[in-house]
Design a protein around this nucleic acid. Structure first.
Lengths: 198, 198
DNA sequence: GTTGTTACGTAACACTGTTACGCTACGCTG
DNA sequence: CAGCGTAGCGTAACAGTGTTACGTAACAAC
């Protein structure tokens, strides 16, 4: 009775990849439904069948980008002292943001269509920080960081690295070398600060 | 020989206000040239005569928003200890961001058309931080903060408050009260951190 | 093979930013 | 006080956008 679907999961993944590539290449305005559809040999119907709207496609790109960031953080080895580990995680965060600047900025663009995030998005963001929170928890357990709730400190460290990444991508931190010095200074200061302030 | 212009500076200011209001109300996609032109009783010709393109209009909104932020920071009184002053500046930054969330996020949206900022934009951003840098300089002079170059510490503090504002606007810091606790913890930690780490 | 239901491509719609065109209003020249 | 020429300005068209309605085509059941 029913015609079998050809807009399968593979098409869906390809569309997300093409959309992410378009955003990474030319920013959010460079993403057009006709463009991404043509890039994977489909039509706009495929997008509406699989996602429902451009907004939902962007949401999927959003989630994919957070997952990629989480993957980069997971790859950081856990060896060394807990504070060194936090520094390495911060630098890995920086590398990930610099690798695809437009995509990173879109993740936090604050497009109102993306801001009222669904619970799934909040969970994805939390999962992104899983690796970081683990390191914070270990540092606290080892007495290298104060506090008992790793979630609080994790969020505050996230705010710092996100702010650094955002400002660097906007050019406010100077060239690559100057920005690197800011990253090291700020990360060292933050870790020592929690140590000193309790 | 020449017809006098009716698209004067007042029209220009009104267009910037209307554009900022549209962005603040519905995000960047809610800004349409026909819409802002109609809001001030003009036509799209006025925008093209005064700005040249939507991009230039957005740039003007950008600068206006940074100027407003600078104005908010200037209003913070300089009394009290230098570290308390830094805390108050951070909280003023937060209030300013929360007052017009969409506008704040657009300021850092990273739209590639805005990223390669002109020198004038970089100067505007620097001026925004003038008040903060003054407080940092005084704190350093008083020995309450280490370091000799207030510019470095200012940028790193800016990264922190920007990250906090960005995450709060995206809902990652929880409700208003929880976010406030994060702000206080992070600001105290940062100030103490520079103190401890040198 | 016929039928019925579902997946899908196409084309239209309303809207966007942008630009070309023509009208209109004014200051200078007689 | 006329007339003209230049510049300012509104209108309308253009290409391109997201979205949707519609017709076609492909398959399972009978």
């Amino acid at each position: 009775m029913v015609r079998p679907t050809t807009y399968d999961a593979a098409t869906r993944a390809a569309l997300i990849d093409a959309a992410a590539a378009a955003v990474a290449a030319g920013g959010p305005d460079a993403l057009t439904l006709r463009g991404v559809a043509a890039a994977v040999g489909a039509t706009t119907s495929a997008i509406y069948a699989l996602f429902g709207s451009k907004e939902q496609l962007l949401r999927a790109v959003h989630r994919e980008a957070f997952a990629g960031l989480a993957h980069e953080l997971e790859r950081v080895p856990a060896g060394g002292g807990p504070l060194d580990e936090l520094l390495e995680l911060g630098l890995a965060y920086r590398r990930s943001a610099l690798a695809r600047p437009s995509l990173y900025l879109v993740m936090f663009s604050g497009d109102p269509r993306l801001v009222p995030t669904e619970p799934a998005d909040a969970e994805a963001a939390a999962a992104t920080l899983g690796r970081l929170q683990g390191a914070v928890g270990r540092a606290q357990a080892a007495g290298a960081l104060p506090g008992s709730d790793p979630g609080d400190t994790t969020l505050e460290l996230w705010a710092l690295v996100h702010g650094l990444a955002s400002l660097e991508l906007l050019g406010a931190l100077g060239d690559r070398d100057a920005a690197g010095r800011h990253w090291h200074r700020a990360l060292r200061g933050a870790v020592a600060g929690y140590d000193a302030a309790g």
